[in-house]
Design a protein around this nucleic acid. Structure first.
Length: 531
DNA sequence: TGTGTCTGCCCC
DNA sequence: ATTCTGC
DNA sequence: GCAGAATGGGCAGACACA
């Protein structure tokens, strides 16, 4: 019976060393002396999860509840004898109970359970428990190194362990199998109604990079700005899973309908993007979001924001896994099982730079994010971000002034690393925020920027340092969104600092009027209007 | 009954 | 989701 | 080239509280 304390000791030891191999050794020795059940829980904990990824249970414990529960540690212990330190499995069962409570008074119940757990742990154990709850274990080892550790302790080749993880989608299940029946680990494969981690794409910044990486011709698809969906269908059933493997079937009845009508097949797992479309044009992502996790919706709402489906892959067909087949084969098979091309992502084969550019521009002009390029010979690598798939997304640029900055945490502690961006409002003569960004600067630049900002400091409130608006930055963003949070009424999506404009004064930054015009232009392009 | 706050391996 | 850094 | 860490906006649901 392994104690939670032992897990914390192993995590600490792994966090202390910097070498990858050494971390793997420590973790494999720890996991190797546990029972299969303990190892599955411990592996999940170390990866920063409580439940399997495909498990829809939620803890409902966040920053606020934790802060309240932590107060119990400051009170004198009520115990006359030292409490029994909990086993790993006990901690897990308690977390299961916490996830299970709901309804009136549930916050209080969760609080009591959490306090009870905290009071049985040392300070350090509480700290690690919190890191697990928030998914930020931060020992320089996450799922990847845990899989290596599992390979080491079970003797199963890393490739087989990785493949098992990809199709099982849970590091705990892999650890369990590795200890219980290592021989079976190499044999698991995609199965119907068990979600697989979706394959991911690397970023590219221009068409030439696509040719450089994938050669000619390019196999391009529209990149839609919607929800990634993995649809499992067969045996009279359909389930839809999100990118993070939540079962979202109940939220997307129209996606189910389109899949059932659009695919002629016994059993299949297909991969695609669901996008809300009005009048033939995609609606802004922000509007589409209104349907995500929306329950018990009236039919007229669904009809006012209908989802269309664009499939681009098939990874399981009539009892056979296709993840080891090349994209060319999967693509052909997908085409064979669809009733009409409408349900597919729009595609082209581009032989020249010009053809590729035209396709990209048509994608963007019709209100989409950009294009995907896919290596024709590549197998489906679940959960892996690599150059087999490249995404090329459109973006715009404005000039902003930094009006405040926030102190960073972890590796960024000591630096001001998150910057509030302002545009100039001519009407009020003030700089109004359009959101924050922490992206685009190197460590050296953070260092320098921190010094400069502190010289401009006006006041400090909590983590936020307000500064005299003086430093101008060029900011890339993918889209302007309406915002209730920011005083400008707008917020930039995926903002990143492209460069610092030492040559510009704050009064030359983009104006609120210009931002508003850009916003209106973009929603006109999408043929969508507010309300 | 209305409003505010918290939470989500949320969605991107 | 994007970006940077260390291995 | 990969894994890990540090962080972005906005939405609905669930609950607490007035």
């Amino acid at each position: 019976m392994a104690l939670f304390r032992e897990l914390v000791e192993a995590a600490e030891a792994a966090g202390r060393v910097s070498g990858r191999k050494e971390k793997v050794r420590i973790l494999s020795e720890f996991l190797g002396r546990l029972s299969p059940e303990e190892a599955s829980i411990a592996a999940r904990f170390l990866a920063g999860h409580v439940f399997p990824e495909y498990d829809n249970r939620e803890l409902g414990v966040g920053y606020s509840l934790v802060r309240e529960a932590l107060k119990v540690l400051d009170q004198k212990p009520l115990f006359l004898v030292e409490p029994q330190p909990p086993a790993i499995t006990e901690v897990y069962r308690l977390l299961e109970r916490i996830a299970g409570v709901s309804g009136e008074g549930s916050r209080e119940k969760k609080l009591k359970l959490l306090e009870g757990l905290f009071s049985r742990l040392s300070r350090k154990e509480v700290e690690y428990l919190l890191r697990i709850l928030f998914g930020e274990v931060r020992i320089g080892a996450s799922t990847g190194l845990l899989l290596e550790a599992i390979s080491r302790l079970s003797g199963v080749p890393y490739g087989d362990v990785l493949h098992a993880y990809m199709v099982l989608s849970d590091v705990g299940d892999v650890a369990f199998k590795a200890l219980e029946s290592p021989a079976a680990l190499g044999k698991v494969d995609v199965s119907l109604f068990h979600p697989v981690k979706p394959m991911l794409a690397d970023m590219a910044y221009n068409v030439d990079e696509l040719f450089q990486e994938h050669g000619s011709p390019l196999h391009l698809e529209y990149k839609y700005d919607g929800l990634r969906v993995q649809i499992h269908m067969g045996r009279g059933k359909v389930r839809v899973f999100s990118r993070r493997l939540s079962d979202i079937t109940e939220y997307v009845p129209d996606v189910v309908e389109r899949a059932v009508e659009g695919l002629h097949v016994e059993e299949a797992v297909v991969d695609g993007e669901a996008v809300a479309v009005i009048g033939g044009a995609p609606v802004p992502f922000q509007e589409l979001l209104r349907r995500v996790r929306r329950k018990n919706e009236r039919e007229d709402f669904l009809k006012s924001l209908p989802f269309e489906l664009h499939l681009f892959d098939v990874i399981y067909l009539n009892g056979k896994s296709l993840v080891r087949e090349p994209y060319s084969t999967r693509s052909r098979l997908l085409r064979e099982i669809v009733v009409s091309e409408e349900i597919l992502a729009k595609k082209t084969v581009a032989y020249t730079r010009q053809e590729a550019l035209e396709f990209y521009e048509s994608a963007v002009r019709s209100g989409n994010e950009g294009v995907m390029s896919k290596r024709h010979s590549s197998v489906y690598k679940p959960g892996i971000r690599g150059s087999d798939w490249l995404k090329l997304k459109s973006f715009d640029t404005i000039d902003c002034v930094i009006i405040a900055a926030e102190w960073g945490h972890g590796r960024r502690s000591g630096w001001l690393s998150d910057y509030h961006l302002g545009v100039y409002d001519e009407e009020s003569g003030r700089f109004l925020s359009v959101g924050k960004t922490f992206k685009g600067l190197s460590d050296a630049e953070f260092e320098e920027m921190t010094k400069r900002l502190l010289q401009l400091k006006v006041r400090e409130e909590g983590y936020v340092v307000y500064v005299k608006p003086e430093i101008v930055v060029e900011v890339d963003y993918s889209e302007i969104q309406r915002s209730k949070r920011y005083p400008s009424g707008f917020a930039l999506r995926f903002a990143r600092i492209r460069r610092i404009r030492f040559d510009k004064s704050p009064y030359e930054v983009t104006t609120l009027r210009e931002l508003r015009e850009r916003y209106l232009r973009s929603i006109r392009a999408k043929r969508w209007s507010p309300q």
